[in-house]
Design a protein around this nucleic acid. Structure first.
Length: 815
DNA sequence: AGCACGCCGACT
DNA sequence: GTCGGCGTGCTC
């Protein structure tokens, strides 16, 4: 489909048929609808149409004067409603098309990803309980079952899909209940997010005949407040009621009209901030970005930890805003970087908006609309923000560009925000700045213009990295997981009233639970993975949770296999370390910073604030500590064990380990006092450890690229991962085989390689069996070399309807 | 997704 | 001989 220029009005002189891209799972495609009289549909509008038995959303794509010959006019249904108009700015469609074609995803699915959630909707079939007669009539088994199920719900109302899973023979059971008048099925109409309206009172004149003293009072109050107030505000300030104000409206003194209000996150007031003085490298970087304004030039801003990248972003953006254009700033996880948003707000004030999945549907909808306004704005957002419809985009910044969360690997499109950002910069003719202390191999190899910040700000030194060989510790008879060196350093910390960070790597996210008597390991009943142990801090309950499907259960006291009481979580990083710390250094005050303690909203900020105010000496945490937190008072970073990071089995293992270690180490010595890093490992000679100590990024990249070249891995080659899954193991395996056979005939063996089909590493998730096929394309000429795959629809047909297929271009997660 | 249509197995 | 399961296909 080629999408239209959105602003064309449909022609009303002739009978007008509208081609609609319908959003329905089974039938993504184009359907023709009639534009009813009195309705003005614009191309690009989000519509509500009836489709089969349900109401679905669709996008107006094109118009036709004549109906295609194979369609009878009587079959055509009218458009039900326009849900939203003008949601796509000019020049936006090519971006969606690019994403759809590169990532082999149906266009409507790309649109669904791009638009704020809740805008595209469909009707839902639901069942609700009507009455409950006290002498219960005789019911069949399934009827009784359904009745009980409905009663157990608070709202006495369930979706059809949900009941289908719970209740065998649902159709029959419902027929029975509805015959007796007990329950009924209904179609819930689609409900889409709408702008929030509030009544506003505007002053027309303070003069009028027969005004009461109270009314005069209100008018002067309104005048003093600038002539316009929300009705609710006015009522509160003037201590009056609606009737008085409507009285004023009748006398023609004021108007009361609904106005759109924006639902936006409450802004925490932050102080004013002035541009800081730049060092030479920062100055050069800012200047080069400025000279590229108006051109689609991509830059790699490679600045060591603490080199002041944020200040470069801020000053790069300033003239863009001054010229009336907007800036898009992408970050890995907004919750983890409250400090960044604070700095942007302190510099640019109310022009700064945020956009991420933590916002409510209404807030995301409103931010989207806000971005359609022509004035200059800054938006800071996560991956999905790359699709925000900035009208005049002047610069795109992608911070921590190496971070894995920019890649979506779950529903299609499996896009990488960095790639989409590159396309946006081209379509908007504006520079793109990729920033990182540890750029990804892909970006490094792409040969972008390099802006280097080799030194920390104010010429502060990089922290000294000391490696502690844990084998020597053991030989010397020290069995603690905290080496003598680290213990001393921690003691020293307390003595000097300084603060430190202790980094613990937990493989995956957490630890598993096993029996010390028989070796039994708790696994998820729906997936082929071990359950992870979590201690909930609210209720002192021990939970086991599956990270793949969300299943959770209370930790059993005894082993389910052999009833042994020695049934405990195993190798827990955080817990073992905190126990050890309590034993060896009881005077040290700790704060935990990990997924268990930061689960609730705002917890990150709270913990960081506590730490910043000196309520603890040591911050103990996991991976999250690597994500761009800036704590100038930290002088010591301890890495309890680098080994967990080093021993991952993936061609990107070295790259990830290097990034993690360098980022953690970089938290040390960002303030005036020089920092120190103590890295404990059993493999001090490991090349990654050596590279981290040497603090020579270019050298590390050269070696790494060499390894990728020899092993024929990305970015030298390009990967495509086809994931198949379904409830029937054999059906999935056979579909994978059929698909692989078909691909073999399509792909040129000289330039590509087919690996698999193989069962996925985690072979079962949520009771679905998973297989995968990996395609390796040997030649990769540009960052976005396109590959020739069979049509998605065709591949899905080969898989059959009980096996789902998803295409992941440039996968980063091969599990 | 939700529904109609149509083909096989268990019951009156 | 019929009822009702569920696999297949269509929805402007």
């Amino acid at each position: 489909v080629t999408l239209p220029v959105p602003d064309l009005l449909l022609n009303h002189d002739q009978p007008c048929w509208v081609t609609v891209l319908v959003d329905s799972p089974g039938a993504q495609g184009l359907f023709t609808y009639r534009q009813p009289e009195g309705m003005v549909v614009r191309l690009g509008d989000v519509l509500s149409v009836s489709f089969g038995a349900q109401q679905v959303s669709g996008i107006a794509i094109a118009t036709q004067v004549d109906l295609p010959a194979d369609l009878l006019p009587t079959k055509i249904k009218p458009i039900q409603a326009i849900l939203s108009s003008g949601f796509f700015p000019e020049g936006y469609w090519p971006l969606l098309e690019q994403v759809a074609s590169y990532y082999h995803t149906p266009l409507i699915q790309v649109i669904r990803t791009a638009l704020p959630p809740g805008l595209l909707t469909r009707s839902q079939r639901r069942v609700k309980l009507l009455t409950l007669p006290s002498p219960l009539p005789a019911l069949s088994k399934s009827g009784e079952n359904l009745l009980n199920l409905l009663q157990s719900s608070k709202t006495k109302d369930y979706s059809w899909v949900f009941l289908q899973q719970k209740c065998k023979g649902l159709g029959l059971a419902l027929q029975e209940l509805s015959r007796l008048g007990l329950a009924e099925a209904y179609l819930e109409p689609p409900r889409s997010v709408q702008p929030k309206q509030q009544k506003a009172v505007s002053l027309i004149t303070t003069e009028g005949e027969k005004l009461t003293p109270r009314q005069r009072e209100i008018l002067t109050l309104l005048q003093r407040r600038g002539g316009e107030l929300w009705l609710t505000e006015l009522l509160q300030i003037a201590h009056t009621s609606t009737s008085t104000v409507t009285g004023l409206e009748k006398k023609g003194c004021v108007t009361i009209a609904p106005q759109e209000v924006l639902r936006s996150e409450a802004i925490t007031p932050v102080g004013q901030d002035q541009p800081k003085k730049l060092n030479a490298a920062q100055r050069a970087a800012v200047d080069r970005i400025h000279s590229a304004i108006g051109q689609p030039e991509p830059f790699l801003l490679h600045g060591v930890t603490g080199s002041g990248k944020t200040e470069v972003y801020l000053q790069a953006i300033a003239p863009v805003l001054a010229s009336g254009q907007s800036a898009l700033v992408l970050v890995p996880e907004i919750g983890l970087t409250p400090q960044l948003t604070d700095r942007f707000r302190a510099r640019f004030g109310a022009q700064v908006a945020v956009y991420h999945s933590g916002l409510s549907e209404g807030e995301r909808y409103d931010t989207w609309r806000q971005m359609l306004m022509p004035q200059a704005q800054v938006v800071i957002g996560t991956r999905s923000a790359v699709f925000l419809p900035m009208v005049k985009l002047g610069i795109v910044i992608l911070d921590e560009e190496h971070d894995g969360s920019f890649k979506q690997d779950q529903p299609q499109p499996c896009y990488h925000a960095r790639m989409v950002a590159l396309w946006r910069s081209r379509l908007s003719q504006c520079p793109l700045v990729l920033g990182s202390a540890t750029p990804s191999v892909e970006t490094w190899a792409a040969g972008l213009r390099l802006l280097a910040l080799p030194d920390r700000i104010e010429a502060r030194p990089m922290p000294a990295i000391e490696v502690v060989d844990m084998r020597e510790e053991l030989k010397a008879g020290h069995k603690s997981i905290l080496s003598q060196t680290l213990q001393e350093a921690l003691r020293d910390l307390k003595a000097r009233r300084q603060q430190g960070i202790l980094f613990i790597h937990r493989r995956g996210h957490s630890t598993h639970v096993s029996c010390r008597s028989c070796g039994y390991v708790m696994e998820c009943p729906h997936c082929d993975v071990k359950l992870a142990y979590h201690q909930t801090h609210t209720e002192a309950m021990e939970l086991l949770r599956c990270h793949y499907c969300g299943y959770s259960q209370v930790q059993p006291r005894l082993c389910p296999e052999c009833d042994s009481p020695y049934f405990k979580q195993f190798g827990s990083g955080t817990q073992r370390v905190t126990q050890e710390l309590a034993r060896l250094l009881p005077e040290l005050r700790l704060l935990r910073y990990d997924s268990d303690t930061t689960r609730t909203k705002g917890a990150y900020r709270a913990i960081l604030n506590q730490f910043a105010q000196g309520e603890a000496d040591l911050l103990v945490g996991t991976q999250m500590l690597t994500k761009g937190i800036d704590l100038p008072q930290v002088t010591l970073v301890g890495i309890v064990s680098a080994d967990g990071v080093l021993n991952l089995q993936d061609f990107r293992a070295s790259e990830r380990a290097y990034q993690t270690l360098v980022q953690v180490a970089g938290r040390s010595g960002r303030g005036k006092t020089p920092g120190r890093v103590i890295l404990q490992t059993y493999q001090p000679d490991h090349p990654v450890v050596q590279a981290v100590i040497a603090q020579d990024f270019t050298q590390f990249m050269q070696t790494e690229l060499q390894i990728r070249r020899i092993g024929q891995y990305p970015p030298i080659t390009q990967l495509i991962l086809l994931r198949l899954s379904g409830p029937d193991a054999l059906a999935v395996q056979r579909a994978a085989q059929r698909l692989a056979d078909r691909l073999k005939t399509d792909l040129d063996p000289a330039s590509s390689e087919l690996l698999g089909p193989n069962p996925a590493v985690v072979a079962r998730v949520s009771r679905r069996y998973r297989w995968q096929i990996l395609i390796k394309l040997m030649e990769k000429n540009s960052l976005e070399a396109m590959c020739k795959l069979p049509d998605l629809q065709e591949m899905r047909t080969i898989c059959g309807n009980q096996v789902a297929l998803s295409v992941d271009i440039d996968p980063t997660n091969l599990i």
